[in-house]
């Protein structure tokens, strides 16, 4: 008969202090003022959001700051319903890629303000191409959740 071997239960819990640096600090300061800031590449012309200190494609410095729109178009989305240890958000929630007006890349964020109780309900409000707008949190300490989520807007409201 096979013997059951012993196991060791252990955890690793380590604190880190990670530097935002100048560019991300300014981007998150912008969020606390209800502004979504990007930087424009003088070579390829793309506006990158969140703001970057350099264009990864052209590999040059970026210092031309622009405020992009608070409305955008959903490029793809997912209703997240599973759970795992250390999960950042409590499900259900919708994660999405949103192309903000005036930006040339997509912002990863949440879609909310709609009934998440079933996929069928979500689908009545949300599909690829749905227009959404930023909903600002009451408290804005300068984090990605200064934008609470993006809410679908009616087709005739923009």
């Amino acid at each position: 008969m096979a013997k059951e071997y012993r196991t060791l239960h252990t955890t690793v819990d380590l604190p880190y202090e990670l530097a935002f640096g100048a560019t991300l600090t300014r981007f998150f300061d912008g969020l606390s003022e209800e502004k979504i800031l990007g930087t424009r590449c003088p070579k390829c012309g793309r506006v990158l959001v969140p703001a970057r200190s350099f264009c990864p494609r052209c590999f040059i410095d970026l210092d031309q700051w622009v405020e992009v729109g608070q409305m955008g178009t959903v490029e793809t989305w997912s209703l997240v319903s599973y759970r795992y240890f250390g999960m950042a958000k409590t499900p259900p929630y919708i994660t999405a890629l949103i192309r903000l007006d005036g930006a040339d890349v997509s912002l990863t964020h949440l879609v909310g303000g709609i009934d998440l109780s079933s996929l069928e309900m979500v689908r009545t409000h949300l599909s690829i191409g749905t227009r959404v707008k930023a909903v600002w949190a009451k408290e804005k300490p300068g984090s990605i959740f200064d934008i609470e989520y993006f809410v679908p807007v009616e087709a005739d409201s923009h």
Partner: peptide, 8 residues
């Protein structure tokens, strides 16, 4: 850790 991780 600044942008994508908190969003899950």
């Amino acid at each position: 850790p600044f942008y994508h991780r908190p969003l899950g």
